[in-house]
Design a protein around this nucleic acid. Structure first.
Lengths: 233, 233
DNA sequence: CAGTGGTCTAGACCACGGT
DNA sequence: CCGTGGTCTAGACCACTGA
């Protein structure tokens, strides 16, 4: 018996974790039913279920009806990233945030995006180019396309005061999206805007969001040199 | 009434989501108690709780005892990354995986890591340098330090057949860790190993894992050009 | 101090999917 | 088919914390 030994679901989770870590239950091996565990711990099955469900979410065990619960063979490493609004990210660093809108116009959707981001034929999208600053030093460079069919009132926004990101969060909530992360070399424009040596490796993120079937926005964000995205597991 | 209208917790979640998306409940606004919602939906409070808990996990609402549940002002974008074992990632792409151990020796911990990765004074760590291939083309370059105090039997492993990653997953499970992602320029070595133009921007990941207080391993993985890490939200 | 979410219980029914 | 996890219920007590 270790310290954590209440019959709380977290306590039970710790004990199950211990058995997995200490190989009491081998990888791939089936572990006792919820009912048996409930009896062993002297608690309701619901409580055991809560603990096991949590372990399943983190990928440590695999659960199937009828087949029972097994210790995962290759527990995947899952990390939850929180991608904040840039202003909040900068302010959380204790630096002051500002931004500058470099371009804003209506234009056809570039062919590159036709596949992932389908808008009605011949319909223009709103294009924005923004530079984000932390303490007056460039922090990130953003290029964004907004589908006016999904957010018609964006047409009347200047986006000088409030960023498109924040405005969209409050005015065109998305239901799902795709994110990807990659690295790019600073071209001439980027190197100038982000105060980076030409050719520097820059961390970049691309995101598309939808409201149901309707695409809302496509954004590519490229961060100044030295940027790291961190998280804990 | 939409399609989803059972009294399942997912059905209730959909309805709550709808009210948030359609501004029935404004951002920052307090929503009804669990008890009231349970009455409205004609279900047990537990079921409403499950739905609200799920929304809270995804960051859409903020819950506090006594203060109630509020619609989040700036719903953070949360994304769950699954970081697989490289072999599985490559095989999932339908390509064949192989790897080659470039270096393996015992050495003192480099000063760079003294802060985050503390081992007993004067104790050597196991250093490994590995190149991962997909269909005989370089896929990723890995540099790893293993704390022999946390995984003593690693000393006897050649790591020629099984990669350190897979071996550690099965033999030295971690309790928590830090991950970060960033971009690096290909130096001479990287460009040669990864078959990349010198100076190319490469996507990189660094990870430290611990078992309790004991550091297990520090790994830096640098991917061949074109690599993207994707996920859905 | 009192209202709210957090959790636990004992029991029940059901859906899925191996055997 | 039938064992297992998934879910729901009605009720209870508790922990936290804001008014």
């Amino acid at each position: 018996m270790t310290l954590t030994d209440t019959n709380s679901w977290t306590g039970i989770r710790e004990e199950l974790l211990r058995r997995i870590h200490e190989r009491v239950w081998q990888p791939g091996e089936q572990i006792p039913h919820e009912a048996d565990l409930a009896e062993e711990f002297g608690c309701a099955r619901t409580t055991v279920n809560r603990a096991l469900r949590d372990l399943a979410e983190s990928g440590l065990v695999v659960r199937k009806r009828r087949a029972g619960t097994r210790v995962a063979l290759n527990p995947p490493q899952r990390a939850t990233l929180t991608i904040p609004i840039i202003r909040e990210e900068v302010e959380a660093l204790g630096r002051s945030y500002s931004h500058s809108l470099l371009e804003r116009d209506l234009r056809p959707l570039p062919p590159m995006l036709h596949g992932a981001f389908q808008v009605s034929l011949g319909e223009d999208v709103l294009f924005l180019k923004t530079l984000h600053f932390a303490d007056d030093r460039p922090y990130a460079f953003e290029e964004r396309y907004i589908n006016l069919a999904a957010a018609p009132t964006a047409r009347d926004m200047t986006f000088n005061d409030v960023t498109a990101n924040e405005w969209l969060v409050h005015n065109a909530p998305y239901s799902h999206g795709d994110i990807s992360f990659f690295a790019v070399n600073a071209d001439k424009t980027l190197s100038k805007k982000l105060d980076a040596a030409k050719g520097s490796a820059l961390f970049a993120m691309e995101r598309i969001t939808w409201a149901g079937e309707l695409p809302i926005t496509h954004v590519r964000m490229i961060f100044a040199p030295g940027y790291r995205m961190r998280t804990e597991i």
